[in-house]
């Protein structure tokens, strides 16, 4: 339930409790997008080792780092290439999602 709790923080708990279909779909869409990252960074951002965990990652830092990867300001092996594939809105959604995940 980390997802719903997290997005409750992000977008308002009342709507979640009501399980409005539109909101349920927004939740699905963001967790689905975030699953792009899970291959390397672990399910819901909980890495099992060898990669940075994104679960519980500070939201503003996530956005700052992704933007630094995109601009080339922050050196990387491949994250500069991956980060360029995602829009500002998608990065903001990912930041909200991962910041709300409980670190295991």
């Amino acid at each position: 339930m980390r997802l719903k709790l997290g997005l409750a923080t992000a977008i308002g708990a009342a709507l979640i409790a009501a399980q409005a279909p539109a909101m349920a779909q927004d939740l699905s869409k963001i967790r689905y997008l975030a699953a792009n990252c899970a291959n390397c960074h672990g399910t819901d951002g909980n890495s099992v080792g060898g990669m940075v965990s994104l679960a519980g990652y500070d939201r503003a830092t996530f956005i700052k780092n992704m933007n630094a990867f995109r601009s080339g300001e922050r050196p990387a092996t491949l994250m500069h290439q991956i980060a360029k594939g995602y829009s500002d809105q998608q990065i903001a959604d990912l930041a909200a999602y991962f910041s709300a995940q409980k670190k295991k």
Partner: peptide
């Protein structure tokens, strides 16, 4: 080629198997 990416490659494997 780098050893750093070698470490990431094994990290990738461990995480995708877990995922």
């Amino acid at each position: 080629p780098t050893e750093l990416e070698g470490n990431y490659a094994m990290g990738w494997a461990r995480n995708i198997w877990s995922d």
